[in-house]
Structure formats: C-alpha cells, structure tokens
C-alpha cells in the first residue's frame, strides 16, 4: 500500500495500485501511481547502490578470475579473460560489449551451462565447480531462469506445456503446475494463447512465454542473453518493461546482455566488456548525474 495525494481534490488516497480512482472525486490516479512506481524503482536502485562495501551486502553472484579458453586445433581463443564481478541480490545488471566480446560465454559460466577453464563462479556463495551433476541441475531448475535471444521454446509443446516443463522437473503436482502455468501466462498477457504452439505465436509472444517459463520455479536470478535481439523496438520495450517490473516488484536479480540502449535505462549497473575483460562499470546514478549535468549546462 502506498499513499497518494489526489491531484484534483487534494484528498489523501491509500492504494496498492489496484484501485486507481480517487474515492472522493473519482479522478484518474493512474498517472500518479505510475510516477510513484518510478520513484520506488529509483529508491530501490538507490538503496541497492548506496553502499559498495562487500561486507554489508549480500552478493548473489560472484566471479573471481573467470576465464574461458576455447581450443580449436592449435588456435586458442580466450573468450573470457579473468573477470571479477560481484552482483548484488535484486540488482538489474546489463552487460554490454561488441559482438564476440564474451557476453554469451560469461552467461554460460554463471548459468552453469559450461565450465570455466580457470577461475571460479559463486552463486549464493556456492562454488559452481563443486556442485554435482544433480545439484547443478537443481540449481538450473530452481535458482536460475534463462531467457534467450532465440526464445528456445520447445517447438512441439504448447505455451502452457513450455511453462510447466520446469515445474515437472521440480516435482510439482499436475494441479499446481496447471494453475501456476495459467497464472504466469495470464500475467504476461497471454491468457488467450495457452494452447498455442510456439510456431503459432509472434516473436514477442514467444519471448513472453519464455519469460513466464523462466519464472516457473521462482528463480532468484534471471539470465537473459540479448532477450530483445530478435524483436522489434516496441516489442523489445515491452519485454524490458516486464523484466524491470519483475525486478522491482519481486526483487529477482536480472542479468542481461544487450546491445539495446533501452535496456540501459532500466539497469542499475552497466558492465562493459571487451575482449573478454571488464572494460568499465557504469552505475545508473552516474549516468543520471551526467544527464542531469548536461541538461543543466544546456540551460
């Protein structure tokens, strides 16, 4: 519940955002609510970024000297070259870099989809390299939700079946699965498309199914590798908004690779990588500050 002041009658209104009409004068409060929402996002981000010291914050992902070298015959390509990065719980982190800079490789490492050549990656302070195959599968099933550029839905399954698949692995009962699956799809705006195959859905709709699927087992982290890469501007924006709202509302950590400047708007931090190394890390505060200064100078 949050308190708002009605812009027309000045009455103080308390709502969780479900009722968006002033009870006394019936003025439309949606604008005010949305603004408050943005303010809350900023506050949350600010709070997350308030303190940089390792001791006071809980990190959900930490990497130390993460290195991945691909060997092809005699040629060695080092796709990652000693990456040290700490990612806070609830953070919205964007990873930017030119093609071939190692973004996907980095994702594979923290997602437990590939093993590093050297260095280590900790999720919830657990070294991924120490996990057994079963624990790793458990981690992929429960802790991490994956979103891909190419959507990667199972083509022979309907939207609902795609969303419930991770729940099957997690051992949910079929009633639970159906209920949760329906709810998730409804919440990403696909209530009319439950029984459609991926081939019968648009790109944006497929990606929304993928988002719902990523949320199936209440993950702590969502890993999105260029989630808007195959979508047009508008549809891409919808997906980004959806991710951001999830991030703000449920505190799920979002780590996303992107070329997309829209994505940067919503990020708490932006990590620029080049040739497998972290080039620089920007904080949103800094960017906002820059924008603010620029605006000031122009006046």
């Amino acid at each position: 519940m949050a308190k708002y002041v009605c812009p027309r009658c000045g009455e103080s209104v308390e709502t969780s955002g479900i009722v968006t009409v002033c009870p006394s004068c019936h003025a439309d409060l949606r604008g005010v609510v949305a603004e408050e929402q943005h303010a809350r996002t900023r506050r949350a981000a600010a709070e997350l970024l308030r303190d940089d010291s390792v001791t006071t914050h809980e990190y959900i992902v930490r990497t130390r000297g993460l290195t991945r070298i691909y060997r092809m015959g005699d040629v060695e390509v080092s796709a990652l070259n000693g990456v040290d990065l700490d990612i806070r719980r609830g953070e919205y982190l964007s990873i930017m870099g030119p093609s071939g800079s190692g973004k996907s490789t980095f994702f594979n490492m923290i997602g437990g989809l590939d093993k590093p050549t050297a260095g280590s990656c900790y999720i919830n302070e657990t070294d991924m390299a120490q996990l057994s195959a079963h624990e790793l599968a458990w981690q992929r099933c429960h802790t991490i939700g994956y979103i891909f550029q190419t959507f990667n839905l199972i083509p022979v399954m309907t939207a609902l079946e795609n969303v419930t698949l991770p729940m099957i692995f997690a051992g949910a009962t079929s009633d639970e699965m159906l209920e949760r699956g329906r709810l998730l799809l409804e919440l990403v705006g696909l209530e009319g498309r439950l029984h459609h195959k991926p081939s019968e859905l648009s790109g944006g709709q497929q990606q929304r199914v993928a988002v719902a699927r990523a949320l199936a087992n209440q993950p702590a982290i969502i890993l999105a590798d260029e989630p808007t890469g195959n979508l047009d501007l508008h549809t891409g924006k919808e997906i980004i908004d959806l991710l951001k709202e999830l991030n703000v509302e449920s505190g799920v950590t979002i780590i996303s690779a992107t070329h997309d400047l829209k994505m940067i708007d919503v990020s708490d931090r932006i990590v620029h990588i080049r040739d497998g190394k972290i080039e620089r890390i920007e904080r949103r505060e800094d960017i906002e500050l820059e924008v603010g200064t620029l605006g000031g100078e122009q006046q």
Binding site: I60, R89, L187, Q218, A220, L246, S250, G251, V252, T253
Partner: peptide
C-alpha cells in the same frame, strides 16, 4: 506475479 514468484529468492 511478484507474489507468486516468491520474492526473487529472498
């Protein structure tokens, strides 16, 4: 959604 996705692993 936030409610059913369980507080993002908190």
């Amino acid at each position: 959604l936030a409610e059913i996705s369980g507080g993002g692993g908190r």
